[in-house]
Amino acid sequence: METVIDIQHLNKSFGTHEVLKDISFSVNKGEVMTIIGSSGSGKSTLLRCINLLEKPSGGEIIYNGENILDDKHDIPTYRRHLGMVFQQFNLFTNHNVLKNCTVGQIKVLGRSKEEAEKVAMKYLKIVGMDQYINAKPKQLSGGQKQRVAIARALSMEPDVLLFDEPTSALDPEMVGEVLKVMKELAMSGLTMLIVTHEMEFAKEVSDRVVFMDKGIIAEEGSPEQIFNNPQQDRTREFLKRTFKVVY
C-alpha cells in the first residue's frame, strides 16, 4: 500500500502544555481515515501540525520519502499537496464562489484562468454548487459555504484532503448535505483524513478510525473494531458518553 503521509513520533507543546504526545501513524493512498475523540484531545492541533499551520515541537512528517520538518523544505510548496477544509469554512470573502476555487490554482499552481475555471467547475459540480459561481460567500448558507470550501480544496487536486470537523459549525439541517458530498468523495477513492463528531458517518465511510485521548492515540483500528468491539477502556467510555449524548 502506498503511503501518502507518514507521521513519526510527533510532539506538540504550547508553552509547557503538551498537547500531542508521540503520535505515529500513516495515511495510505485512497484511504479514508477518521479521527475521533473528545474535545480538547488534540485532534485539530494534529491536523494543523500536518499541514504546518502549527509548527510541531518534535518528530517527523514524511512526505514523498522526505522529512518535511527539515529546514530546507519550503512550506508553501509542501502545503499545495494537502487540502484543508475548516470548521469555519474560511472562504475568501472578497471573491465569489468561482474565484474562491480558481485563485489558488492560478497563483500557486500557475494554471491559466481558462484551465482553472474548467477544473473549478468540475469540482463545483461534484459538490452541487456549480449554479452559484457568481455568489459571494456572505450570500450562502453554511452548508453551501462548506461545499464551496470543499470544491476549493479539491480544485488544487491535493494528494490528501484534511477535514477539521467540517459539519460542527452547521445548523443541523445542513449537516446532511455536506456529509453526503463527503461520502461521495470517499467512494471516489480520494485520500481523506477527517476529524469528526459524526459517529454514524465515521462508521460508514472509514477504512480506519483513530481514537485520540489527551494528546495520544489511544486506539486505532477498523471501524468495526472501534465502534463494535473497542479494545481500550477509554474508547469504550468515550463511545458510551458520546452515544448517550447523541441519542
Partner: peptide, 13 residues
C-alpha cells in the same frame, strides 16, 4: 479574520 489567512496558507500561498 485569521481563518482566511490560514485557508490561503493551506492552499500553498
Amino acid at each position: 479574520d485569521k481563518g482566511q489567512f490560514e485557508a490561503a496558507q493551506a492552499i500553498g500561498m
